[in-house]
Simulated scan of single mutants.
Amino acid sequence: MQKEKFISGMNGHIVLSPMERERIIQRSVEREHWKTKSTICMEEMAELQQQISKQIRGYDDRYGLLEEMADVYISLKLLESIFNVTPEEMQKAIDVKLARERSNQ
């Protein structure tokens, strides 16, 4: 997405319902082969790594960081759909990881 369009959207009044978000994700998964979509998800994760690196080095680009984080969040939702991971399974996996983190503190 062009940065100017993203910033404009962030300052606008775009609000999608959970049902609309899910519909968009489903259509996205249906449009491309799952291997292609999975590869795109990996690329989005790499772009977030680059943005985090820029933040660490002092580039103050909050919108850039938010855009890449949103891309990865969407990618995770796409991967849940592609690999048939239920919300309950994902939440349980998150809870297991967080419980492990808590015990390490």
Results as ranks from 00 to 15, higher is better:
4 E>T: 05
4 E>D: 14
5 K>W: 06
6 F>C: 08
6 F>G: 01
6 F>A: 03
7 I>S: 00
7 I>V: 13
7 I>K: 03
9 G>K: 04
10 M>T: 12
11 N>L: 08
11 N>I: 01
12 G>V: 06
13 H>G: 00
13 H>Q: 00
13 H>K: 07
14 I>P: 01
14 I>F: 09
15 V>F: 05
16 L>C: 10
17 S>T: 14
17 S>R: 09
17 S>L: 07
18 P>E: 03
18 P>G: 02
19 M>L: 12
20 E>W: 12
21 R>M: 12
21 R>W: 01
21 R>T: 12
21 R>E: 11
23 R>M: 14
23 R>T: 07
24 I>H: 07
24 I>W: 09
26 Q>S: 08
26 Q>F: 12
27 R>S: 11
28 S>I: 06
29 V>K: 02
29 V>Y: 10
30 E>R: 09
30 E>C: 00
32 E>Y: 15
33 H>C: 09
36 T>H: 14
36 T>S: 14
37 K>A: 13
39 T>E: 14
41 C>M: 08
42 M>A: 10
43 E>D: 14
43 E>N: 14
45 M>T: 04
46 A>C: 03
47 E>V: 03
47 E>Q: 08
48 L>Q: 04
48 L>D: 06
48 L>H: 03
49 Q>L: 10
50 Q>I: 00
51 Q>E: 13
51 Q>M: 05
52 I>P: 07
52 I>N: 00
52 I>D: 02
52 I>H: 12
53 S>H: 14
53 S>D: 14
54 K>W: 01
54 K>M: 02
55 Q>I: 01
55 Q>K: 01
56 I>K: 11
56 I>D: 11
57 R>H: 00
58 G>H: 13
60 D>A: 02
62 R>P: 02
67 E>D: 09
68 E>A: 02
69 M>T: 10
69 M>P: 00
69 M>S: 09
69 M>N: 05
70 A>V: 04
70 A>Q: 03
71 D>M: 01
72 V>Q: 03
73 Y>H: 05
73 Y>A: 09
74 I>L: 08
76 L>A: 08
76 L>R: 05
77 K>H: 07
78 L>W: 01
78 L>M: 12
79 L>F: 05
79 L>R: 04
79 L>H: 11
82 I>E: 07
82 I>F: 08
82 I>T: 10
83 F>G: 03
83 F>M: 11
85 V>H: 02
87 P>D: 02
88 E>M: 11
88 E>I: 00
89 E>F: 11
89 E>S: 10
90 M>T: 10
91 Q>H: 11
91 Q>P: 00
92 K>M: 10
92 K>F: 06
93 A>Q: 10
93 A>W: 13
94 I>Y: 12
94 I>M: 06
94 I>K: 12
95 D>F: 11
95 D>R: 08
96 V>F: 14
97 K>F: 12
97 K>Y: 15
98 L>I: 09
100 R>E: 11
103 S>R: 13
103 S>Q: 15
104 N>F: 06
